[in-house]
Design a protein around this nucleic acid. Structure first.
Length: 323
DNA sequence: ATCCTGTGAG
DNA sequence: CTCACTGGAT
């Protein structure tokens, strides 16, 4: 494509400068950075992956686990996972059923398949990748995880924007009308790139995350104990009445589809092989289902699980798939 | 815009 | 009960 025409497209043009830091604002953020780094010295959360960190492999595994899974939950499960798979090589050598069983309970099981595939790809390389491009080429690694690995494993001066940081920086940038409001992703990325303290990327992003997780929480931010409340235009945002925008999940036989998916995968993983009919019967009796179409529902989910690489089936039934 | 998972806080 | 949690892929 013609590079000039491409540059003229609205998106590219806007992305070059969505947000302008006036000198006054820059000075305000300088103070914010100092205050949050100080706060972090005293109040940072202690997690095993932070202690064991600087090992790219540990960062990699922890970041996969931390995608949409709470840090406290990860803290419980990471040690046993690392014990079972202590290195890229060990994880690459493991079978898919082994990895899936080790992952059980953490949720978003596709992450386990992705992590396993990523380990296999990494095992063929001489050294651990150190660029966003290489990292993003691995399955299950997007913009966030790639930059998080670079910042946390290598202390690289790259912006890292997760939901916590998105929320905290939005509130610090200007007065947000309600607790749900956020700046566009591009703007946050640019803001973080401009204010992040060089050489302290890891501590800075940990500070933002810990602050967002313990003080600048989404629903009820604790502005009274916030170390940067005097520098924050959104101070007190939590006191406003918020309308509920989120819609509830659709239920199938009393539960969201994803819950049945989890139960089905778990049931398959607990035996070597099982027929679709037997599987449905187990769930019907265990959860007191009263609907003839449930078996169809189970079959449907099984075929999706097969398509996605979790299970395989022969004429004798379903079992966990080997890579 | 939706789907994927399970746990815990409030 | 509702919602948040260090997202990614489609």
């Amino acid at each position: 494509m013609n590079a000039f025409l491409h540059a003229l497209s609205k998106k590219v043009y806007q992305s070059s400068s969505i947000l302008v830091l006036h000198p006054q604002t820059r000075a305000r953020f300088k103070r914010i950075v100092v205050a949050l780094l100080d706060w972090h010295e005293e109040n940072q959360r202690s997690f095993i992956w932070r202690d064991l960190r600087r090992s790219p492999y540990v960062v990699l595994v922890s970041e996969y686990m931390l995608q949409q899974t709470g840090a406290k939950q990860v803290e419980k499960r990471l040690p046993e996972f690392l014990k079972q798979f202590p290195s890229v090589k060990a994880l690459a050598k493991a079978t898919r059923p082994e990895v899936l069983r080790a992952w059980y309970g953490l949720g978003y099981n596709r992450r386990a398949l992705n992590l396993h595939a990523a380990a296999k790809a990494l095992a063929t390389k001489k050294q651990f990748p150190k660029t966003v491009r290489e990292l993003r080429a691995l399955p299950g690694i997007g913009q966030y995880t790639a930059s998080a690995i670079l910042s946390f494993a290598y202390n690289e001066d790259t912006p890292v924007v997760d939901v916590n940081i998105e929320r905290v920086l939005s509130r610090l940038w200007k007065k947000m009308p309600d607790v749900n409001a956020k700046l566009p992703m591009k703007a946050i990325d640019q803001l973080d790139a401009e204010i992040l303290p060089k050489g302290r990327s890891s501590a800075w992003h940990e500070a933002l995350m810990d602050h967002g997780s313990t003080i600048c929480t989404k629903k009820a931010p604790k502005c009274d104990v916030c170390p940067v409340n005097k520098l924050c235009p959104s101070r007190g945002v939590g006191n406003r009445i918020i309308k509920n925008t989120s819609s509830s999940e659709k239920l199938y036989f009393g539960q969201p589809r994803r819950i049945w998916r989890g139960r089905i995968l778990q049931t398959v993983s607990q035996r070597d092989i099982i027929t679709a009919k037997a599987l449905a019967q187990i769930l019907i009796s265990e959860y007191d289902i009263d609907d003839r179409s449930f078996s169809e529902f189970v079959t449907d989910i099984l075929s999706v699980l097969e398509r996605e690489g979790f299970v395989t089936h022969t004429k004798n039934g379903y079992s966990l798939a080997h890579g």
